[in-house]
Amino acid sequence: MKIALTCTGKEMNDNLDLRFGRCSYFIIFDSEKGVSYTLENKGQSSGGGAGIAAAQQIIDEEVEVVISGSMGPNAYNLMMSSGIKVYASKELPCAQVLESFNKGELEEITQAGPSHMGMGSGK
């Protein structure tokens, strides 16, 4: 199973990034192989629709679980429709977050934040 964590840096001991669409990196942990790799979040650099771009990246990586702080409804709905589970955590080092996840201590997000898709300038 592949688990994606939104991260402020490239390493497992960097803190979890609380934003999904505009997080700096994704750390993808493959639990079968026991290895992880880091991806730069493409959503971060896009003017609008950051959550959508980030979600596309997650789906393209065939991830099954995402851990972040919160998630906008566009991204959340995309996760749901692709059968990806989303868990929420506090701003702690990713290694620690992953550990809590493995112990079953994290809460699954079952409801999205508000939609701001396309509000404001959309830019």
């Binding site: 934003r19 919160s70 701001h116 509000m119 404001g120 300038s121 959309g122």
Partner: peptide, 13 residues
């Protein structure tokens, strides 16, 4: 100002 993307980015977290 407003309720769009900029304000959301200014209040998240």
């Amino acid at each position: 100002p407003g309720i769009g993307c900029p304000v959301i980015s200014s209040i998240t977290g």
